[in-house]
Design a binder for these strands. Structure first.
Length: 493
RNA sequence: GGCGGCAUAGCCAAGUGGCUAAGGCAGCGGUCUGCAAAACCGUUAUUCCCCGGUUCAAGUCCGGGUGCCGCCUCCA
């Protein structure tokens, strides 16, 4: 099957053809390190994480570059407000970013370049543009002259007249055209600066991505990604700079992820509805957040709310319940020496055949522009099928069970590796979930366990009235009990 | 003002010309259970915002309307 990708540049799904067979170069715009990561950053990170994971699972050697913007107005502002150097701010938030990403199970990109470590490349690029006549210097600022570049607007589907009519562009009389953008900025008194042919200054925002993608992936590479808000002006400007400098296309495929809304509203500082990743992860297992995001297509907006995460948690519990059943059955099989044969040998082949089919369907969904929502549908089909097998288990010979279990494990490994979920041991997952829920609800584990023990002794004495009274008491706290021959376990609903 | 997107069950959400409109959550009936929970089985959209059109065939294409949203300014 071919990999299809919706290319923002053409607004169509296209068949993906890498420049170099078997290899993929992908550049994604990372964060500006001036604050902690919020759920929007998390979505972008998870989306491209899954893209890279899937391409790798298909055998591509993927070089994934995600940058850090570590010098910029907002970083300087924050440093001034706190009375510290800009480096302290950027270091702090890069570190926080790395912690969040690790917690979310996001695989570290192949290269994570920082703007400040590529000054020479940026200066060379700006110089190149100046020499070619695409850039002009005014008072130590260098601007890109869009009038000299006739393809401006190709990515975002705008033309110059429309944008001029829009008129909401910043007023700056140094520029020949209001849409010209800064490649290099003269540094003001007290601001950090680097020496350059235009005097002391610092890079404009867009130039770093052009310089760093070129350094690590070449003049033209396969995929460029980012949030949909970056289409204009950031990516438009990147294309203009790079293409003007090299005469070649910057990237063949442009992928943009949709936004996260909060309770149906746009997330914004003024509404005060920014959710830092760290806050969310206090209340939910990271895979809950991943599952929540992957249940929608990456280009659609997702609407974050407590209810929607709670729902995703329930779904994830369904998955881990099955993984736990598998684990227990595996344990049972190891100490089982019976050699009875299966009642219906064809059912065994039937299971194996259907597992195979689900892997194919999963991959087909992922091939179709990374349709994780559809792929998850097949994951849940696999959950149901595995549960069927577990119900059916008594009729199947041990050797066949072992075979089937090995196969289910393989299937879930594939799904889990691609989506970055189901990566925990089932018992660990439930333990961590229980801990999180207890903390969130302010419940005391000792009290609960004491009641559970009291109920267990009541049950031994067949004092059902007492047992049910305790069940009811715990139910008020949203605690659900599960009796089994080996004792009673509980979890929080 | 310009550009673009979305509208599918109680909720979330796939599906972009053709077998029975995925999947999750919630609900209902059943099996299992001392009672439950989990799991399983069955069930829940004669229909995809509205009106017209194209077609043998449309949720899916075209035209119009209504509603919601995003971008055009730093933003994942």
């Amino acid at each position: 099957m071919f990999q299809k990708i919706f290319n923002t540049a053409t607004r169509k799904k296209e068949i993906f053809e890498p420049i170099k067979k078997g290899a993929v170069g992908i550049y994604v715009c990372g964060i500006t390190a001036y604050d902690v990561c919020h759920i929007g950053h998390a979505r972008a990170a998870v989306v491209f994480d899954v893209v890279v994971r899937y391409l790798r699972s298909k055998g591509y050697a993927v070089t994934y570059v995600k940058n850090f913007t570590d010098i910029d107005d907002k970083i300087i502002d924050r440093a001034n407000r706190e009375g510290v150097g800009f480096k302290e701010i950027s270091e702090r938030y890069i570190k926080a970013h790395d912690e969040d990403m690790a917690a979310l199970g996001v695989i570290t990109p192949s290269v994570t370049p920082r703007a400040t470590e590529h000054m020479a490349e940026m200066i060379a690029l700006v110089k190149n543009l100046e020499e070619k006549g695409y850039a002009y210097c005014v008072d130590g600022d260098v601007y890109f002259e869009i009038g000299k570049y006739n393809q401006y607007g190709s990515l975002s589907g705008r033309n110059l007249e429309e944008m001029m009519a829009g008129a909401r562009v910043d007023v700056n009389d140094k520029k020949k055209n209001p849409l010209d953008f800064a490649l290099w900025k003269n540094s003001k008194e007290g601001e950090p600066f680097w020496e350059s042919p235009w005097g002391k200054g610092r890079p404009g925002w867009h130039i770093e991505c052009s310089a760093m993608s070129r350094r690590y992936l070449g003049e033209t590479f396969d995929i460029h990604g980012g949030g949909e808000d970056l289409i204009f002006p950031h990516h438009e400007n990147e294309i203009a700079q790079s293409r003007a400098a090299s005469g070649k296309p910057l990237a063949h495929y442009w992928i943009h992820n949709g936004f996260v809304k909060i309770n149906s509203e746009k997330m914004s500082k003024s509404l005060g509805n920014i959710f830092p990743v760290k806050e969310i992860l206090k209340n939910y297992h990271p895979e809950v957040l991943r599952l929540f995001m992957l249940q929608s297509h990456y280009r659609s907006p997702v609407d974050y709310s407590d209810d929607s995460l709670a729902e995703a948690r329930t779904s994830l519990i369904r998955c881990y319940t099955t993984l736990k059943l598998m684990k227990d059955l595996k344990g049972k099989l190891e100490s089982d020496s019976s050699s009875a044969s299966s009642k219906n040998p064809e059912t065994v082949e039937n299971y194996l055949g259907r597992f195979e089919k689900l892997i194919e369907k999963f991959d087909e969904a992922m091939d179709d522009d990374f349709n994780t929502a559809q792929a998850l549908g097949h994951v849940f089909d696999m959950i149901r099928l595995t549960n069927n097998f577990i119900v059916d288990e008594k009729n199947i010979a041990s050797s066949d069970k072992t075979r089937i279990l090995a196969e289910t494990t393989k299937v879930f490994d594939h799904f889990g590796t691609v989506l970055g979920v189901l990566q925990s041991d089932a018992d660990h997952f439930f333990a961590s979930d229980k801990e999180t829920e207890l903390r969130k609800r302010g419940l005391n584990i000792d009290e609960i366990e004491s009641l559970v023990r009291q109920r267990e002794s009541a049950r031994k004495e067949k004092d059902w009235a007492r047992a049910d009274a305790i069940r009811k008491e715990l139910a008020v706290l949203h605690i659900v009990l599960k009796d089994s021959p080996h004792g009673t376990s509980w979890m929080i609903e």
